[in-house]
Amino acid sequence: MIKRFFSLIFVVLLALVFLPLVTEIKPLSELGMTSAKYAEDGAAELGAANLVTSVVVTYRGLDTLGEVTVLFITTAGIGFMLRRKTILPEKKRRASEILKSGTSFLLPLIILFGVYIFVHGHLTPGGGFQGGVVIASAIVLLMLSDINMHPDHNILNWLESLSGAFYVIMGILGLILAGGFLDNRFLPLGEFGKIFSAGAIPVIYSLIGLKVGAELVGILNKLGREDK
């Protein structure tokens, strides 16, 4: 009882702390030194219309590499912890016909939308992580509609490792041919605001999307399906 009371008080206090942040927010009159540099030079230097993208992929690209590595470690940890020896056979109910037909109709659409999100990452909101999550959701829909569906371990592992390796290779190419690690300017910058612009950013984002999607499908596969 006392624990419930304290958690209630805690949530209300948290709300009171965050309320002024929301109601009294004003646009900053002037930016700090780092953000001012990003905001002024970012679009002209890297050619990406979405400034968040140029910060995530190029200026702070090393951090993104770290985040993807954390996801990889999570996958490995879940695979290590959920390894089971004996499996009792379990009864399941098959999905209905409408769900199966709907899945076979919607699956290409969802995957195409995920590809759109990470290829257009430098123009519209979204990017590699979001696109990867959308693709993983499509595969999960397939797993929900068919109880015998098992995504192949080997293909997932190869996809993940290859896209991770190519991500690092793109970074090193930037180090050799342009200014620094993960610099996107070794490919032509192109016309501002078109698909083929912003140098290597779409390529790097596609690799991040493939890697994140493969990792998330791996996690859900280990949670939901046992190895025979």
Binding site: K91, K92, A95, L109, I110, S137, V140, L144
Partner: peptide, 19 residues
């Protein structure tokens, strides 16, 4: 619009023991 229905389908499959 494209993703949120997957969560509802997952809850339904959990309820009817098909997960």
């Amino acid at each position: 619009a494209l993703i949120s229905f997957i969560g509802v389908v997952a809850i339904a499959r959990y309820l009817e023991r098909g997960l």
